[in-house]
Design a protein around this nucleic acid. Sequence first.
DNA 1: CTACACCATGTAAATCAATAACATAATGCG
DNA 2: CGCATTATGTTATTGATTTACATGGTGTAG
Lengths: 279, 279
Amino acid sequence: MRDTLGLIRKSLKGLRNSEKKVAKCVLSDPEAVVRSSITELAEKAGTSEPTVLRFCRRLGLGGYMELRLSLARSLPSSDYIFENVREKDSIAEIAGKILNAHREAITHTLSRINLDDLEAAASELGQARRIEFYGQGGSAIVARDAHHKFFRLGIPCIAHDDPHMQVMSAALLGPGDVVVSISHTGSTKDIIESVQVARKTGATIIGVLGSENSPLSKICDIALSVCSREAALRLAPMTSRLAQIAVLDVLFVAVAMRDFGATRDRLDKVKMALVGKRY
Amino acid sequence: MRDTLGLIRKSLKGLRNSEKKVAKCVLSDPEAVVRSSITELAEKAGTSEPTVLRFCRRLGLGGYMELRLSLARSLPSSDYIFENVREKDSIAEIAGKILNAHREAITHTLSRINLDDLEAAASELGQARRIEFYGQGGSAIVARDAHHKFFRLGIPCIAHDDPHMQVMSAALLGPGDVVVSISHTGSTKDIIESVQVARKTGATIIGVLGSENSPLSKICDIALSVCSREAALRLAPMTSRLAQIAVLDVLFVAVAMRDFGATRDRLDKVKMALVGKRY
DNA sequence: CTACACCATGTAAATCAATAACATAATGCG
DNA sequence: CGCATTATGTTATTGATTTACATGGTGTAG
């Protein structure tokens, strides 16, 4: 785990009081720490150098230098992260801004996501008798992508974007079945209706959502929110889509790893089937 | 410009001989520099500390510390980048590995992609009378995603994953039309056939591909290759898919920025149309 | 061809930051 | 209430980075 900020957040409770002051200081302005000496940070945190050092050690780092280096790495590597794309931007600038926003979204998702929920979701999916992925519009693409991965695991899967198909299919589910509802806003009427129908049947509902508090998050058994500051611009939800796909990748791999022997066989079969389609 | 390695490469010719030795050393193993003291680097480069320092200054950096920090930032931020997911991995480890692989893929795509090609592709797409996105299997998802973005720009678009629809549709194209062919392997027969048909009509072919030298790349007018070391594991092409989506995001934004006034109106209309679908 | 000058590079010394060792203050428990 | 233990700060040491200076080489002009 190289995500230093996430590591600090997780370690917070196990820290001494004055070390906590250091942690707060680092979290509030990591950028500054990279530029500061240990003396400066100690002063800013209202404590002493050895305390800062002890803080580093407790994080599992060798020393203060390592903290700086480690922070420098996990920090957005660019000046223009949250800067919007402008009309006069060159293609190089646009590429830089967009791809950095994407990278940033993934970084944030990694550091913010609730691992217990992730674990629980993987467990549910691994035992599922049947998985249905629901998504509308842009999220339909995420749903399809998820379907395209999970069917390889030998679990009956389907992705539905048609709301009618969703409710009809949802009505036929039961305990042991899992619905993965994908939504950027978490307030799309159609999805919410489909989920409500599925819920009544006793199926487990997992949400892959773009925002923390939404109507949909409240009716999911497990709600996974990706970080979506939807940075670079307001053109279309791009970064959150990428983050959602990434989260489903993680779930897919986690499920695949539950019984890797069997998975490997199936994946090989899938691969072999495709050979004839290529030159 | 935070891309320190790029900066070093560009500065190479303006350097003194012994400074060049330092530069070579840094370029050959930047990772090591982050962990080294100035003395170690000087020794490795067969020169002295002050030379290393002068090298830093010539790069516009304050000192050796800044070089280390700066390198740490521009380097891929993970230890386990190319490490495979293992069966016994915890969910936290899996998430770390997968998301880092994704981030890595985006970073590499950003640093490797040919900006002239990207520019040319954006220009073609911006002037296109009609855009068709072709992709099979996993790439069909990328094609759909692209369609889902580009149609907002008011350009007639379609995504086809059915090979029959592809060839039929391709046969009806002509000069001024653009085909975006998406393929991970670049050797899928169906796509290649569709592209060949489209080519004969005089349509422009843009390829968004996973590998550099493939049959498909040879018959594209513009071939954009994403970096796809398909890091974490062999389960399914995940990182390259993400990178392909990211590249299409960049193209979408670049095209959108060509006439931002008109684009903004259209995007607003799209957004307004969705309002009634939400709570 | 030689000598002077300047530029590149290395050596040695000084400074400053990072860490270790130690001392003191605070807190908890018997 | 006092002792013990732990948290924190002070001082000292070490080791890194940087500066100042000296040497050696190279190019040019006399």
